[in-house]
């Protein structure tokens, strides 16, 4: 992305330079040429000119629309990550960055990524608003509490790059910095394998799932008190109030921390809220665990067997049930 952003930037710099110099030269020229030569001199009376007014209204309008088109084109490239991405979870807190790789490798204030891969960061904050900014990649995105934001990039050159927190977050805001370490794929694989990773992120999530005794209610066989999680991710479900909800990271997070906000239809508000009991990183592990339980369409109902299917229940995959 950096070359595309730079090209656009240079275009704007050129445009700015052109108009600034044009206006500056005109002003200086008039300033000298039409300087007052006697104390009583007055200017020539000119009220205005419609043709000129229209010209210098329309031309800036057209120029800005060209800029808008170009910038929008760039913007879409930023907002639409490629289909296949290497996902890395990011948790910001005052004043450090915590990264979790899918294989369970974790790091702080340093982010290792392989060169040439599409890397997608899924980010949240434990406290206030932060912002991941990697100037070399021309990317930036706020990291918000209670929400997941995303950004993606494709590093093209190995090396170490600045990573800044760009949203003011308090005392050590300027110390909330780190580095993106871009490595050759082999080197990256080697780095991933080092360290004391306790298994993949999903397996850590699975362990947490057991430790928190989630498995007593969320059972694979549809007789538990909670919805079946197998194959749930990416599906669209019906809520207690009849609303529809796509199961994405944000919904899973909300359902773990404040489960009773949006209950799946047919379930009682019996699940305790895990707000304050699970860390943001733990939540991400659980989400990765749920994702690992399969995202293929399932024929099993997600409601308890005893309840029986209700009208509006999602038995057949709807077109919205995109697999992730």
């Amino acid at each position: 992305m950096a070359p595309r952003v730079d090209a656009f930037y240079l275009f704007l710099v050129g445009l700015t330079a052109f108009f600034s110099i044009l206006i500056a030269l005109t002003v200086i020229f008039y300033f000298v040429k039409y300087r007052r030569r006697s104390p009583d001199q007055v200017g020539t009376r000119i009220e205005g000119g419609m043709a000129l007014e229209i010209t210098w209204s329309v031309i800036p309008l057209l120029i800005t629309m060209v800029i808008f088109g170009w910038s929008t084109n760039l913007f879409f490239a930023f907002t639409r990550p490629p289909a296949e991405t290497l996902n890395i979870y990011v948790v910001g807190k005052q004043w450090m960055w915590k990264f979790q790789h899918l294989n369970g490798q974790r790091e702080i204030n340093e982010l290792h990524v392989p060169v040439g891969r599409n890397v997608k960061l899924i980010m949240t904050s434990e406290d206030v608003i932060h912002d991941v900014f990697v100037p070399a990649f021309r990317v930036k995105a706020d990291v918000l509490p209670g929400r997941y934001t995303h950004m993606w990039f494709n590093p093209t050159k190995p090396g170490r790059y600045h990573l800044f927190c760009a949203e003011y977050c308090g005392t050590k805001h300027s110390g909330m910095i780190g580095e993106v370490v871009v490595q050759e794929p082999a080197e990256y694989e080697a780095w991933l394998a080092t360290g004391r990773a306790e298994g993949s992120l999903a397996s850590a999530g699975g362990k947490l799932f057991q430790d928190l005794a989630c498995n007593t209610c969320h059972r694979p066989d549809a007789v538990g008190r909670g919805p079946v999680l197998q194959g749930l991710f990416g599906r669209q479900i019906t809520l207690g109030d009849g609303g529809r909800q796509t199961v994405d990271e944000a919904y899973l997070r909300e359902s773990i921390l404040t489960p009773n906000m949006k209950l799946t239809q047919g379930f009682q508000p019996v699940m305790p809220a895990y707000q304050g009991l699970v860390t943001e990183e733990g939540v991400l592990q659980l989400i990765e665990y749920v994702k690992s339980l399969g995202t293929q369409p399932q024929s099993q109902p997600v409601r308890p067997a005893s309840g029986g299917p209700a009208p509006g229940e999602t038995h057949t995959p709807s077109p919205n049930e995109v697999n992730r």
């Binding site: 808008f68 913007f75 930023f78």
Partner: peptide, 8 residues
């Protein structure tokens, strides 16, 4: 105002 550049 250019969103694509404002990001940076």
């Amino acid at each position: 105002s250019s969103v694509g550049l404002d990001i940076h």
